[in-house]
């Protein structure tokens, strides 16, 4: 556990120091959200209806922006070789790096989302469910992004490919995320159920994604 914490801490420090991580993703998120009202026109009722879905899509894209960095640099500079030889199972290394990505990128985005919602005339009653759904969903987003990052780690400029591979996997999170955020509109009981399904997806990817990512990375190290 202490070893994993050392790895998580290092990755977070690296993301914060190198730039291009959390800051860029937040900036991108903000920019998309600012552009939306300009594109959609000044219809406030329409905006309020679209806001949760628009925030979710902007969140997915922002998370993917930095996804290819999860393993890329460690692969290029040989750190991944040494980690693969280390005392920690490689699956846990992949898990720790996904968690670091979540803490440094996805979670800040999820926390920022309700504030950016003000720009989209987000209804106040939706803020809390949206925040809960995004916090839960963002774990899954980082874990799935790690699979895409691992599969493309040996490719030059694999960033776009990561998006192509991972965005389809995001569909369930998007469906239940929007359902949880819009719960009040859809009827009673929908939001809690959707939140529970989001939690289930998060737990499943917590187990499966590190295994998939580690397998992909191993095949590159050979």
């Amino acid at each position: 556990m202490k070893l994993l914490w050392a790895l998580i801490r290092r990755d977070i420090v690296l993301t914060l120091r190198q730039g291009g991580g959390a800051g860029t993703a937040l900036g991108f998120f903000l920019t998309v959200v600012v552009l939306l009202p300009i594109g959609l026109g000044p219809n406030q009722a329409l905006m309020q209806k679209l806001a949760p879905g628009a925030l979710w899509i902007a969140l997915l894209l922002s998370v993917l922006l930095s996804a290819d960095r999860i393993f890329q640099q460690d692969y290029d500079d040989g750190s991944l070789d040494i980690m693969a030889m280390g005392p920690v199972p490689f699956e846990l290394v992949a898990l720790a790096k996904s968690v670091a990505h979540w803490l440094s990128t996805s979670l800040p985005l999820a926390i920022a989302a309700p504030f950016l919602g003000f720009l989209l005339n987000l209804s106040p009653s939706v803020i809390l469910p949206l925040f809960l759904a995004m916090t839960l969903g963002s774990i899954t987003l980082s874990l799935l992004a790690a699979i895409g990052a691992a599969v493309t780690v040996g490719l030059r400029r694999g960033g776009l490919l990561v998006s192509l591979l991972v965005l389809p996997l995001y569909v369930p999170v998007l469906i239940f995320g929007v359902a949880a955020s819009n719960g009040g509109v859809m009827g009673d009981g929908v939001a809690p159920a959707a939140l529970l399904i989001l939690a289930a997806i998060a737990l499943a990817s917590l187990v499966l994604s590190p295994i998939a990512a580690a397998a992909a990375l191993r095949s590159y190290l050979k």
């Binding site: 290092r10 690296l14 120091r17 640099q73 040989g78 750190s79 070789d81």
Partner: peptide
């Protein structure tokens, strides 16, 4: 294992 790549993080 000391490889050609140094496994050094330039930002640290």
């Amino acid at each position: 294992y000391i490889a050609h790549q140094e496994a050094v993080k330039t930002a640290l």
